[in-house]
Amino acid sequence: MLSLTGVSKTFFPGTANERRALRNIWLELAEGDFATVIGSNGAGKSTLLNVIAGSLSTDDGAIVIDDRDVTKLPAHRRAGLLARVFQDPQAGTSPHLTIEQNMAIALTRGARRGLGVGVGRKRRSAFREELEVLGLGLESRLKTRVGMLSGGQRQALSLLMASFTHPRLLLLDEHTAALDPARAELVTELTVKVVAETNLTALMVTHNMAQALRVGNRLLMMHEGEIILELDAAQKRRTTVADLMDRFTSVRGQLADRSLLS
């Protein structure tokens, strides 16, 4: 489904600030895989998502999604294959547009946008049904501007917008990190539900190790631009947060980042 072969990315090459964000990454996700990605700050997690989405170019290696080599495609042309939810709840939606208008944009992701009506009666009722799944009452607020919603509501909407069109690949970039614990839990539950129900292939970056172990069928640990640990479903079940911490500590040769415990 998704394959990265020898992908590398260096920022500010040849300067004093040179930083190798990704070093020779090899990654293979099968159809329906839900992989969580953990690692300390600067490990390359977000860069990994950004090169897959096309927000960043690669220096080396190839990215293939669904048998299609997308390595050279700009971000907006990869959008038909993948959808993203960002960490910032503001990032995934358009604040001055209404809920239904935002969903119309998501619905036409990757398609040619012509002069057809953006939100017609048929689409509106479909959007209402989709929104009911969230259980946040948004289905009765179709004409509300998204800027009026809370962070949690916006993030839930972003998740729905990313998933209801059944993209080939769903990228989640610490999408619960900016929410309060209750909202984060809600959005996590929705994520698990949505991915399971629609059998999406997903890659989720998270800072929360317990969440990384609980959610999905695979786990990747990154450190300094490399994938240093890969767990399959069975291994994940046997692994505890303490095991992951030990692993981190041994790799880093120092006490692991406190934020990893959160």
Binding site: A75, H76, A104, I105, A106
Partner: peptide, 28 residues
């Protein structure tokens, strides 16, 4: 009328949230 079409919504998103527009497959 134009602003309510699919293309018009894409245009509005371009001005409103370029990051979302690009992620939504809009050529800004």
């Amino acid at each position: 009328w134009f602003l309510a079409t699919n293309f018009g919504l894409a245009t509005q998103a371009t001005g409103d949230n370029p990051q979302m527009a690009v992620a939504g497959g809009i050529s800004t």
